[in-house]
Write a protein that binds this DNA or RNA. Structure first.
Lengths: 344, 344
DNA sequence: GGTCTGGATGTGTACGGTCACATCCGCGCC
DNA sequence: GGCGCGGATGTGACCGTACACATCCAGACC
């Protein structure tokens, strides 16, 4: 215990100061201290100052456990997340954390490692054991909603990055629109044979992007082909590319995210194919690295931080009892770089 | 409130069941229930079963706030993090979360957005207000240690990814060694003019990698030149490349992380330079995408998940009072791909 | 058969806050 | 001058749990 030897002067503080200690020092009742802590009006300025001085003097910190016990409010927002190592979820979480902290809430984050029901349920269970007051679901999978119902979570929740199919609880980026924009861009460049490498089927956003893709193709009366179901990783994009390029019966690819697009471009290089000369590629997300891929990737940008902030705003509003909250979707944006070109 | 209308049958539960409710249903005293919850021995199997049944029947969940209040143990581990959107920290955090959860701890994560003292202090303050029992510092910056001392954090803490300069509290990847491996690899390929693009100077790991780089050059009696101080981003690597390649008085680059290496390779393309034909590049971290860069990046792999796990193991050991814990560094590993070649 | 022993279980209290309610006091009003 | 009023402050109870201690009881032992 280096800390002990470094400052042996200070007496061992057996117990942290509590509200009554503060009251004693300030010469008021503990209730008055409590009032100060809770910004209650009707305190004489002089008294207020005395209490504040006492708090500083003792280095008093309110005991959150005690407060939570008596108010039965944990001041905790739960986050059920998947793939937190990815740029999108990670960015949203960071924004959520900041917004929550500013509002006096703390976060409890848990990762689900598989999309199996048991895993989701166990994650939710963990969060509920902490008496969360609200729930944010990031990168939602279809089964999450079942679990939320089954476990009677019973707190306000929002879902990020979903499709809007559950508008009551989702704060959504219009993924369908984003996918349409990407697809339309390729169509406008003259591509008629477009491949889609999708995310895992049980991911709502993967599904949404696929829908957008298919609808846009349909609107243009183009032939649709079965999308490839991937797993979001660059490696998948690579191996899928190795497979698909053996036939090369397409001139453009819309990848479900930037990582898979990266892997696919890698495969193109191995086949000696030029991007965008031979194959055009569009990604999704606009991770910061996408601008530096070879070639810089045309992709669909999502404002992950904005989504995170709005999620918290929405939940806090609901906790406060506000009704009529804005659920309008966040609009994605097509970022055209150098991985797409007019079909030759 | 859709939830309300969806299942209106259930009566409004005014109060969650507590330990006494369980006791009443099970026909035992509340203390017996408490014993069951805490796995105390000396309970008649029959009684045990009755209590468990009652718990299930009522859907009882222990109130963590009450428990924390009486035991004065928050069962919370604080995480002070920076750059959580990056692969390394994000991976470590995920591992930490899993390990902590398995051990019955929850995590409280806070991000510091700037490396200023005030920001660090405010982050620590936030964590302390939650009565954390231990602290993990991720991606540490020099000033963090000052803050930890100033605020008398007073709980066990470990630092991830540091240099070993503070071996008491750091669980370190041998960054110096990793940097030496990268540099030596370039030297062995015949490079004598090697550039280093470092991370921000106030990051301990950036400093460590720079040290390793300089020492290895020194050992080989090669000319050292001032490293460029970057900010970890791909964009920085790109713009640094645009600048440096105008002179091109080097044949190899050791980048402080994979992102900056990516940006640098982008700059090389713009100059019409081949990697590794004209310039060899080594990164650091081995993010999953690195294998699919153009060309696939030679880099130094760190086992971020392992670090995270060991951090928790270390802290839990200390909380339990174990002494003599292993602080041996995690060894990084050089992953040779196609961005490095013998000097021509 | 009384005493000792230890396993199984029950009772009182404390943890640190907040809430509802009580009290005190000075002021304006009839 | 007694009364009502409202601002400022104090008192008691309670939130749900764990710990220390007390109690009960059956079996071993002399």
């Amino acid at each position: 215990m280096t800390t002990e030897t470094e400052r042996p002067i200070e007496p061992e503080r057996v117990r942290a100061p509590n509200i009554r200690d503060v009251a004693r020092v300030a010469g008021v009742s503990y209730q008055t201290v409590s009032r100060v802590l809770n910004d209650s009006p009707n305190i004489r300025p002089e008294t207020l100052q005395r209490v504040r001085d006492a708090i500083d003097e003792l280095g008093y910190r309110p005991n959150q456990a005690a407060r939570a016990l008596v108010t039965s409010r944990s001041r905790t927002i739960g986050v059920l997340a998947a793939q937190t190592v990815h740029y999108g979820p990670a960015t949203s979480i960071q924004a959520i954390e900041t917004a929550a902290r500013e509002a006096g809430y703390r976060l409890s984050i848990t990762n689900i490692t598989s999309s199996e029901y048991a895993s989701i349920k166990s994650g939710l269970d963990y969060l509920m054991s902490q008496a969360i007051e609200a729930l944010v679901v990031i990168a939602p999978q279809v089964r999450v909603f079942e679990a939320i119902n089954d476990l009677q979570v019973g707190v306000p929740f929002v879902t990020l990055e979903a499709t809007g199919m559950n508008t009551d609880h989702s704060l959504w980026v219009d993924q369908v629109m984003g996918a349409r924009m990407a697809t339309r861009h390729l169509i406008e460049l003259g591509h008629t044979e477009i491949m889609h490498i999708s995310g895992p089927q049980d991911w709502i956003e993967a599904e949404a992007r696929m829908q957008g893709f298919l609808r846009e193709l349909g609107d243009a009366d183009l032939r649709t082909r079965a999308p490839i179901l991937g797993d979001w990783t660059a490696s998948f994009g690579y191996y899928a590319g190795l497979e698909l390029l053996r036939y090369r019966d397409f001139t453009a690819v819309f990848a479900g995210n930037d990582q898979m697009a990266l892997g696919f471009m890698h495969a193109c290089r191995e086949f000696g194919l030029s991007v965008p000369g031979d194959i055009s590629i569009v990604g999704f997300d606009d991770v910061p690295e996408a601008a530096h891929f070879a070639p810089p990737l045309t992709t669909v940008r999502q404002n992950f931080a904005e989504i995170g902030r709005r999620a918290i705003a929405l939940l806090l509003g609901e906790l406060r009892g506000d009704t009529e909250l804005s659920h309008e979707p966040v609009q994605p944006e097509l970022v055209i770089r150098q991985s797409t070109a007019r079909v030759s």
